[in-house]
Design a protein around this nucleic acid. Sequence first.
DNA 1: GCCGTTTTCGGCCCGACTGTTTTCAGTCG
Length: 576
Amino acid sequence: MKNAEISRLFQEMADMLEFLGDNPFRIRAYRQAARVLADLETPIEDLARQGPNTLEGIPGIGPDLAAKIQEYLQSGKIAAHEELARKVPAGVLEVMRIPGVGPKTAQLLWSRLGVDSLAKLRAALESKRVLELPRFGEKKRLRLLENLALAQSATQRRPLGSVLWRVRELLAAIRGLPQVEQAECCGSVRRYKETVGDLDFLVATRQGEQVLARFTQLPGIADVEAVGENRATVFLEDGLQVDLKIVPPESWGSGLQYLTGSKAHSIRLRKLALEQGLKLNEYGVWKGEKRIAGRDEESVYAALGLPFIPPPLREDWGEIEAAQAGRLPKLVELKDIRGDLQVHSTWSDGKNTLLELAQAAKALGYAYLAVTDHSQSLRIAHGVRVQQMKQRIREIREINERTGAKPYLLAGAEVEILEDGSLDYPDEVLKELEIVLVAIHSHFGQDEKTETRRILKALENPYVHILSHPTCRLIGQRKGIEADWQKVFSRAKSLGKAVEIDGHYDRLDLPDVRARQAGEMGVMISLGSDAHQIDHLRFMDLAVGTAQRAWLGPLQILNTKSLEELLGWLEGVRES
DNA sequence: GCCGTTTTCGGCCCGACTGTTTTCAGTCG
């Protein structure tokens, strides 16, 4: 799939055109096309095969860019990209990525001081030669030096789950400030996007300046980048950027909408407003000078003739059209979840005993919990040996008796899919288990055909219920395996089996786009926290958020079923 | 460069903050 490659080339072309001072709307067109390509679920080469009209049918792709995509697919390059690369020194693009350096500054630094790398930028800043440039003073010099250091340490987007505890802490601190009427964390966190670039907090208050002054003093804040009347930008000790935006209480809803984004979604809304003779900004929906909505988010959408669109859908992935047509999905919510279908105990690599897990699950109000310890060949995780299995199942039953099966522990396993697609337990063991997950933890490097065959073989074992963390990607660390997902999902569908969204913070696997594809094909989706200790059970929240981003409703999710329904489903899989 | 039940040409989302200015350019979200 070449979508990401072409998207990156268009992005670079936009950067280079910007550096050269080209038409800003042309630049925007390249960025828009880059975004659309990156979000596309279908391989662009499949669409290209259906003829030129199909490519031009993609919003944001016109005749020119369609031709460039074809050119890349045929020749592996885009002549216009190479043409631009000849005019723009390679290192200039990374200089432009330093916060505070835009195209104009980069152009100035390059043409006057020959800056075409981060090393030369540092030298120019440290030697103070930059002060010769127009609109360049000492403050700006120091700020850029600081940003350069920060950029080189921590500007990567991080997994959502790795910042959530920080979000809760900060939100509590902000809500605790005097004069704060309402506060929320917005941005990609509120949309449950799998990675987070920065944190965006919104506060409703009439005393913005006082709130901002206190906010910048909160513990853990290492550096204050900017503070005005209405917003502040700070950095935490680990380099994470945090923005806080102030709106008056009557603008709380429009402020939420604005700060939650996504940018693409907001731009669509603003255009929609203009078409209706209205204006949308963070302070409200306006008819001339008069604010006609903004107190809450529902009113903002209503003023534009739309039902409320839940934040996880706000990506311009068709949610606005669906809203206009009255076809927004009813999304699964955390409160619909009756149990967790992937957890690990001390029988393998988990930190808590079966009993502790049962008690923690009870506190969450779960009706059931599938204990899915690793199978024997996963030595690193102390996989359960065949000869231990009888004893383990006996202990699970004992605990069910002790607790009155509240919650009911299902005897399960996360069974290794071996290199050739065979499973790590013999069928005699599998059939003793009430729920069988299968997963890949090794031999990731196989080609797409081999990997697909491997997964299908595992799925076809009659005792298997669920394909766990299917792509095996680790966010920011491992790309994941190549497989023909269309084939995998279609086989899962015909076998009546489920695929999982693993909510563990570094997995979120299936990813949103793939989960949406599976859901559209009618495959049952199972949610698991993949908890290895009791406080990881809350990763279910991330699994649900990802399911929402995949447009999934409660009926498509296996663990919204009651215990009886679930047991019936599990048996049904084996009978068919 | 894209797009169009107002348009095939003339538009293209909107506002805040900083630093260096003396009214605003550049950058960012």
